[in-house]
Design a protein around this nucleic acid. Sequence first.
DNA 1: TGACTTTTGGGAGTCACTATCAATTCACGG
DNA 2: CCGTGAATTGATAGTGACTCCCAAAAGTCA
Lengths: 205, 205
Amino acid sequence: MSRPPAEPTARTGLRELKKQRTRRAIRRAAYRLFGEQGYDATRVDQIAEAAEVSTSTVFRYFPTKEDIVLTDEDDPVLEAALRARPAGEPPLTALREALRETVRTVYASPEWVAEVEQRMRLVRSVPAVRARLDESMAATGDLLAEVLAARTGRSPDELELRVFIGATLGALREVLMHWVARGLRDDLMSLLDRAMDVLEHDLAD
Amino acid sequence: MSRPPAEPTARTGLRELKKQRTRRAIRRAAYRLFGEQGYDATRVDQIAEAAEVSTSTVFRYFPTKEDIVLTDEDDPVLEAALRARPAGEPPLTALREALRETVRTVYASPEWVAEVEQRMRLVRSVPAVRARLDESMAATGDLLAEVLAARTGRSPDELELRVFIGATLGALREVLMHWVARGLRDDLMSLLDRAMDVLEHDLAD
DNA sequence: TGACTTTTGGGAGTCACTATCAATTCACGG
DNA sequence: CCGTGAATTGATAGTGACTCCCAAAAGTCA
């Protein structure tokens, strides 16, 4: 896994480091203020001030206020997990296992868990954030379509494939909503399993 | 089906009539301007002016600009169709038939078709409108949960039930997106059938 | 017709977000 | 270690959706 010298990810040292720091500082400040005063009552200026950057900088890092909440570093994990599934495996099994793997990965990092939980609480309470989540899930759908289409040699636009993905993501959405509605107390993996069982067996209940 | 005299829907004559007229005028003006200049380039002031009302009035009728596009009169149709299904019928069949019935109803009215098509075009091109559609589909999900829970004597919050609904609506969303992506040329009913077949058979393809 | 209620218009204000430009900070070869 | 070029930042001035508020207008009903 040696990297070529000119990676597009880690360009030049100090600059990139500071950027990541700023990004984190903004997120941290935002989460703190959201927790203290609520999402709507927190102005972007306040977040900027708390993070010790200018308002313009906040918008340079996050295109919208909702994006401060939803950064979505899970997509690459899901994609990698799905690509790692054996070629012969039926799509639903592959997707199910990839989702399980993603949950496992997230749970392996305590701070990641904390972040996800904070995020989900905002998803529940703030409609705008929820809307943004749906949008990002749609993007995830496009991504999954690409990967699954490549696996089976079909077109990523084929209706049957998209329906399959749409149904699965719709189910996943309900899992997340159910989870957060009950105060994140349930075991996410179990909820996911129950949901995927519904999809696998027969949807006719 | 005779109605009690004091319906909350049609309160008093002239007032209500004018309201409906204003509502329509705003929508008509908005659709026209959106078509001519695009959604983003159309300011709410312009819509107000074209509809010959004040800007405040526009916001009194529609809480957001996106809501001018999405009014969703289909929900009651869907609900009625679902309630009309025989009690013994398995949920997926009932929901499938209810959806078919809804599509049929919409297609029975040419102007309704025109409206839906215009709406869908904006859903495709404007992210904000699409987000609003997702939100309204979530609300539809809550509605369906109530009705289906009542049918089977279960709780509307039960995960399995919500997953079932979420998956179906996810599939429906893909149908709509597929339909609009191909310029609304396909037969919507056929697309719906193909999608429901995917859900019914096995999602494993 | 006249009192009462609902709806409307207009104005002032808030806040997320954009565009722009000068100042600062970092990268890197000499 | 220094100077030049590139990336990043901050400040400022917008824009436009949306809210609040109040006085004028219109509809309702006795």
